[in-house]
Design a protein around this nucleic acid. Structure first.
Lengths: 127, 127
DNA sequence: CAGTATCCCCTCCGATACTG
DNA sequence: CAGTATCGGAGGGGATACTG
């Protein structure tokens, strides 16, 4: 019963969930995707302002990774000062429903989880 | 247009996606949830064997976190040697569809993303 | 404006050894 | 069997300063 399932999970290298989570499971990717998904095309500093507390470095890294993965497209206007616009690609857009599903679940169960954690740690301190 | 969206995203502390991603966005949580979701109730070492390349420490930490969040329940049989069984709670089960959605997307788009990355890095080395 | 380049901390995670 | 305890490396991410 277990042995039959070994190979299914053991080959982590090509695990699809790992593959996607390694990319969007970081601190900022999903937030950036959500913002672009909702607001359309945005410039670097617009995204920066909307998020508010992201460092310039991490926004750069996040956008570069998303661009490399083909989730975000980057358009440069050759002018001074430069203007760079970011938009979700079709692939990026296709990820929105999955994120929405996750968001729904999170919104619905946040308080339950929070309560569970508090109960759990309280029970630990008693022991 | 941007200003109205500021508060929606800027308060990261209570951002639901952050909240859920901070928990299941780690290296092993989703895998453990998937395995328990598919195989039902399992003992510590059974999960360990199925995954294969997880360290004992990380399996412990992962299961403890999932238990604290109320996603996994832990049942101890007071015997020697000990027997401990892990099962998804109702809350844990309710997360399965979201994970499935994400998995579907990952499976469907893995190759596209991989190709995109290769193209991207190849174009970098040219410059 | 849209980034780079550094420095550095801190957490995640693995390896290893030990225990009730 | 099902953990705990400890150490240490890798890298994610922030702060700051600089640039075309």
């Amino acid at each position: 019963m277990i042995k039959e399932n070994l190979e299914k999970y053991q080959i982590i290298e090509d695990c699809p969930v790992r593959n996607v989570l390694d990319r969007i499971g970081d601190k900022w990717s999903i937030l950036v995707i959500s913002i672009l998904g909702e607001l359309g095309t945005l410039r670097f500093n617009e995204i920066n302002s909307i998020i508010g507390n992201i460092s310039q470095k991490m926004l750069t890294v996040t956008l570069k990774t998303l661009e490399a993965d083909g989730l975000v497209s980057r358009k440069i206007y050759p002018q001074v000062p430069p203007r760079v616009e970011y938009t979700l690609t079709e692939l990026g857009n296709s990820l929105l429903p999955s994120i929405a599903t996750l968001t729904q679940w999170a919104l619905k169960n946040m308080s339950t989880i929070k309560a569970s954690r508090e109960r759990y740690f309280k029970s630990l301190s008693v022991k």
